[in-house]
Structures are given as structure tokens and as C-alpha cells.
Design a protein around this nucleic acid. Structure first.
Lengths: 139, 139
DNA sequence: CTTGACCTTCAAGCGAACTTTAACCTTATC
DNA sequence: GATAAGGTTAAAGTTCGCTTGAAGGTCAAG
């Protein structure tokens, strides 16, 4: 399989695949007689793994460290540790997102709760005051 | 208030504050006779808002579009729409994170479930096969 | 009157993950 | 044999959100 086909089937750009190779995530593909890269079908699974890992929040460097050069020699303990760590990372992110969401929603509620007799400017002041409260850095 | 104090109290670097000004998030501060920037106390609230918005996932450009140049003239409808959109974005992210987490956890389970009589290499193959399944791009 | 902590500007650098560009080669089709 | 659609490389450019550096001006203390 040439790089264009691999790109199409994986959904990645060919340039991205070459980039991964240059970064050492993919071992250099074998070449056809004309110099074109020639990929085995397994390359597609490997790209899937990389894309999954990325989507899970691993950086390319982390992925590189975890992907075995030789497909059969996984560093089992390291991999499990990394996976566990990443789940913990995700949980931190989830908590932060939940907080941000709550924050935005309370802000929307605050804005909506403008008393009928209050003008926009006063409402803005009220909202701003509530936002600015309690965020000063301690000395 | 000079920039150093504002930096300390907001928790931002002075360079970041200048950067925000250069990007148009902050209107140019007035200057003391020596040319130093001189900030009113409200600058602190404004920085808080910016920091909150960033933490909620707004880019600096989005924040700039939403922050009123004149502190009293909020584009109410636009703001509410942006907030609603951002909550939707956060929910998408939450779903993706949950999926990534589930994915990683099932991967860990799969790895752990290695039959006692299977060697590492065969287990690796089993795990890889399960990972690569069903991800091909439709033509 | 020198030291050091601040402040100023403008320009360049960083890191992540790619993409784009330029210059060139290969293969298939009209 | 011209053209278009692919492939090759190396190097430079992009975006985001800043930081760092160079080359200064300002100000209080010793």
C-alpha cells in the first residue's frame, strides 16, 4: 500500500504519516523499486493506535515511548502505569470541565436574573462584581 | 497600580498582561508621567474574567470578541449565545473524555485478561487485533 | 553616584503537531 | 510527448499563548 492509500484509509494526511515516521513513531516503511513507501496492512492498525492514544490525551512523545519498536515486545508494566496515569489525567480534566460548565451556567443564570427594573448597565456591573469577587492572589 | 502590582495580584506575568494589551483584549492602560502603565483597580476584575473565560475553554480571540470595549456596553444576546455554545462544547469534550477513559479502561482489562497459558507476544497480538478493529475510513 | 528593582519597546524564540513550499521524480492517460 | 496525479526530500511556515532577550529609561536606597 502506498502512502496515499494509507492516508485515505486512515483518515490522516500523508504529510502527517511522514511526520510520524520522522519523529520515530513509525519505523521507516520499506520502499518500492521507485522509492515510494510501501506499507503492510498492519500499518493501518498502528495508525489507529496512535490516533486513539492521541485522542486519549497522550502526546506524540509519550506514544513513542510506549509503542514498542518491535511489535512483539511490549513493556507491560510501563504501559499499564502510563494507562493508569492517563486515566487519572482524564479524571482531572473531567473535574475541571464540570467546574467550568457550572461556572458558565451560574453566570448565565446571573445574567438572566436581571430584575426588570434594572438597566443593562447596572446589570453588567452586578455581574462583573460577582465575577471579580474573591480571585485576588494572596501576597 | 503599576503593572508589577497588577501582575502579582492577578497571578499573571507582567509580560502576559502586556501581551493581552497588544492583542486588544485589554484597552491600552493610561500612563504615569514617566511612561509606566497605570491601572485602575477594575483591571483586576477584567483580568479575572479573562482568566475565567480561558479556563472555560475560550480562546483569546473569542474572549476579545465577547469582551465589551466599553465596560458598560455588553452585547447581551451574543454573550448568551457564546456561553450556551461553550457549554455545548464542554459537553462534547466531556463525552469524548468519558469515551477515552472507557477505551483506556477496557484496554487495561483486555491486557490484564491474558490467559495464564498465553505468552506475552500472543497477548500483544490479541490486544493489537482488538485495537485495530473497525477503524477504517469509509471510501 | 552606583546598585538594583522596576519599567519601556520591539523582536525573536518556544513547543506541539502538523502543513506548506520548492524542486524534483514516476506513472498513467490523452 | 504533454499533462496530471501521484510520489520523494528538506526546510520553512502556521497557530496559540505566551516568554525571553536586548537595549534602554526611572527611581529609591545606601
Amino acid at each position: 500500500m502506498k502512502i496515499g492509500e494509507l492516508a485515505k484509509r486512515s483518515g490522516l494526511a500523508a504529510s502527517a504519516i511522514r511526520f510520524y515516521e520522522s519523529k520515530g513513531l513509525l519505523k521507516a516503511a520499506s520502499r518500492q523499486s521507485n522509492g515510494y513507501r510501501d506499507y503492510p496492512p498492519e500499518a493501518l492498525s498502528l495508525l489507529s493506535i496512535i490516533m486513539d492514544a492521541q485522542q486519549a490525551g497522550f502526546t506524540l512523545d509519550e506514544i513513542k515511548r510506549l509503542l514498542p519498536t518491535d511489535a512483539a515486545v511490549w513493556r507491560h508494566a510501563e504501559l499499564m502505569t502510563a494507562l493508569r496515569d492517563k486515566v487519572a489525567d482524564i479524571e482531572v480534566l473531567e473535574a475541571r470541565l464540570a467546574q467550568s460548565k457550572a461556572h458558565i451556567q451560574s453566570l448565565m443564570a446571573l445574567i438572566d436574573a436581571k430584575p426588570d427594573d434594572m438597566d443593562c448597565q447596572a446589570n453588567a456591573a452586578r455581574v462583573l462584581a460577582s465575577l471579580g469577587a474573591g480571585r485576588e492572589q494572596p501576597d
